[in-house]
């Protein structure tokens, strides 16, 4: 952040050592600049590829597109991609809604409540969750979780059915968005927990003691000092999790009974589908124009993810003055 003041007249004793130090500095500066530039190049290349490959579908006339079996009769790419974007966002935000409170709870327990030995063990177990491949989550979600939660969804639709979200009767088997949300939540839990835990552990002792000395209980101390300090870190963690949930393919593909509507009903089958799962589902049998249309949906996913991340950064930056970083 702060630049080193440049000395106009260096002391003579240093001059001998200078050239070599300069070379090391230049190499390091070059390497880090290169790494930084590389990420931009990769990002631009991905965007370029998506745009290039999607172009035929974007510019294709409607009657040509409508010949593809899974594109709506009006032959509009927008009518096709709309429900997919909707379904993707519903799945990802549902997962986030379920995962973030639990992740913050676990992270706080590990950082501020658990005895040290238990905290270490628990942290390890949570990290282990991240090592499970998503195919396994898909199998587990479809074969174990879906039958298990069906009665719960049934009960939910019977008691809270008047809310459109929980409109019944709950589908059997429970290959519905709610089940997908739960599985995605479990999948993004480790990353959110791990990052939040690290952020909470960074809370300056001074701030915690300030709260305690005012007569705060442990929970009040967490609310006054730990959570506000960790806020931006938790948002970043949630965004990492959201990114994974937005792009998750296998688990959704293996659990969800797909449908292309703008339905918010989480307990009904055949209502929503996500972009990533849809691409995987349609890709093997798609015509060249079909592939292009699918890549166009991929472009939409790319844009959504980028937009969500920028939104999160804006949220964090808005209160930068109060972040504790200064």
């Amino acid at each position: 952040m702060t630049t080193e003041p440049t000395t106009s007249t260096p002391p003579p004793a240093r001059e001998v050592a200078r050239p070599q130090r300069d070379r090391a500095g230049r190499v390091f500066a070059g390497l880090s600049t290169g790494a930084g530039a590389l990420i931009l190049v990769v990002l631009a290349a991905v965007a370029g590829f998506l745009l290039l490959e999607a172009w035929p579908a974007i510019t294709a006339p409607a009657e040509q597109l409508s010949r593809i079996s899974w594109i709506p009769a009006d032959g509009s790419l927008l009518t096709y991609v709309g429900p997919l974007i909707f379904g993707t966002l519903v799945a990802a935000f549902l997962a986030l809604l379920l995962a973030v409170p639990v992740a913050i709870g676990i992270a706080l327990f590990i950082s501020h409540y658990a005895p040290r030995r238990l905290a270490n063990a628990l942290g390890y177990v949570v990290d282990l969750l991240a090592a499970i491949p998503s195919v396994v989550y898909g199998l587990w979600g479809g074969l174990v979780l879906a039958p298990l939660v069906q009665p719960v969804w049934q009960w939910l639709s019977e008691t809270l059915g008047w809310i459109p979200l929980f409109q019944g009767p709950a589908a059997t088997p429970a290959r519905v968005m709610m089940t997908v949300g739960v599985v995605l939540a479990v999948m993004i839990l480790p990353i959110i927990t791990a990052v939040s835990r690290e952020v909470f552990l960074q809370t300056p002792r001074l701030h915690e003691e300030a709260a305690l000395a005012l007569g705060a209980t442990r929970w009040e101390m967490v609310r006054m000092a730990v959570l506000p300090f960790g806020r931006s870190g938790v948002i970043s963690a949630a965004m990492l999790g959201l990114g994974r949930a937005l792009g998750e393919t296998m688990a959704v593909l293996m659990i969800l009974s797909p449908g292309l509507t703008y339905s918010l009903a989480l307990l009904l089958a055949g209502r929503q589908q996500t972009i990533a799962a849809n691409i995987a589902l349609q890709f093997p049998e798609a015509s060249p124009l079909g592939v292009s249309a699918l890549i166009a949906t991929g472009l939409a996913l790319f844009v959504i993810t980028l937009a969500v991340n920028m939104l999160a950064r804006w949220v964090v930056a808005r209160r930068a003055d109060f972040s504790g970083a200064n």
Binding site: H207, E209, A210, P228, F229, F322, S323
Partner: peptide, 10 residues
């Protein structure tokens, strides 16, 4: 305390 510790988020 020894070092000033106002809550930075407040």
């Amino acid at each position: 305390f020894q070092r000033p510790n106002p809550f930075p988020t407040m």
